[in-house]
């Protein structure tokens, strides 16, 4: 059995009633290097619960880096110090005895905080519902091989489609922009022939939704690309920009769709 080490955690705490939070300090002993970061928080929460203290609210689900549920800022690093990975893939062997680890939630106006490290990212779903799809009803599709797709283009579409919707791009962005997220979905469907018929309305509506929900503007600092767990490239943002200009100045005007969003558990006032 490996020997554990001791760490100090400074964790952002915010109750459901408070508007703003504060840091609270916890000490944790016997941290095993093979533990994942979230398992370390599990151990801490078990300990807090047993001591009659309030556990830290923190979200995760699949714990294998694909569901996009977890997301923390650890010592200022979005998704932790490992490059291009999620918090759940981070292991404690990255830390050493005596480390002080600061943990904060993702922050951005369109991601209202709920409690402690838990935030509401339903704004990303709303961007998708504005056009991140191909309008085809189940049962009406043509034979799958009837439209060949160039292999390298299909790979490019897949690169963009790999997005897990974790919101790290927004969290890392100095402007809280969601352009990498939005650009990735627009790119995936702009590259594939299946997405072609709705290219114009898609980019116009998704950008409209993105603006409406209060995300910032890209200033091309590429912090998003640097943290993206799925290594989605900023060339997707360029493609979105291109699509936007194309839609405005080259294409016929498509009818604009009204934005209809689902209601999230945390209400964003503008939407009511």
């Amino acid at each position: 059995m490996e020997k554990g080490f001791n760490i100090t955690l400074r964790v952002w705490k915010k109750s459901q009633d408070e508007k703003d939070g504060r840091f609270e300090t916890y000490k944790l002993e016997n941290v095993i290097p093979d533990m994942s970061f979230l398992e370390m928080l599990d151990v801490l929460n078990e300990k807090l619960l047993k001591e009659g203290k309030e556990p830290i609210a923190v979200e995760s689900d699949c714990r294998e880096g694909i569901c996009g549920c977890c997301g923390l800022v650890i010592n200022g690093d979005v998704h932790g110090p490992d490059e291009h990975s999620t918090v759940c893939q981070l292991h404690m062997r990255r830390f050493k005895d005596g480390d002080i680890i600061t943990i904060e939630p993702f922050k951005a106006s369109p991601f209202p905080p709920i409690k402690d490290l838990v935030i509401d990212r339903s704004a990303l779903d709303k961007i998708i519902s504005a056009g991140g799809y191909v309008s085809v009803n189940a049962g009406s599709a043509p034979e799958a091989n009837s439209i060949p797709v160039n292999k390298s283009l299909a790979e490019k579409a897949m690169d963009a489609a790999a997005c897990i919707g974790c919101g790290a791009c927004v969290a890392a962005c100095p402007n809280s922009a969601a352009m990498l997220f939005t650009g990735a979905k627009i790119s995936q469907l702009a590259i594939l022939p299946q997405g072609n018929p709705e290219r114009t309305s898609r980019v116009l509506n998704m950008v409209k939704a993105m603006d409406f929900l209060g995300f910032g503007n890209c200033s091309n600092e590429y912090e998003c690309e640097a943290v993206c767990p799925k290594e989605i490239k900023i060339s997707n943002i360029a493609r979105m920009n291109r699509e936007f200009l194309r839609a405005n100045f080259i294409c016929e005007e498509d009818p604009e769709m009204p934005l209809v969003f689902h209601k999230s558990t945390v209400d964003i006032p503008e939407e009511e």
């Binding site: 579409a157 594939l192 299946q194």
Partner: peptide, 17 residues
């Protein structure tokens, strides 16, 4: 058929199929 039509980027061969 349906998944391809909805934009799922399945792996392709060099011929595009």
């Amino acid at each position: 058929d349906h998944c391809v039509a909805t934009g799922v980027p399945f792996a392709r061969e060099y011929g595009g199929l």
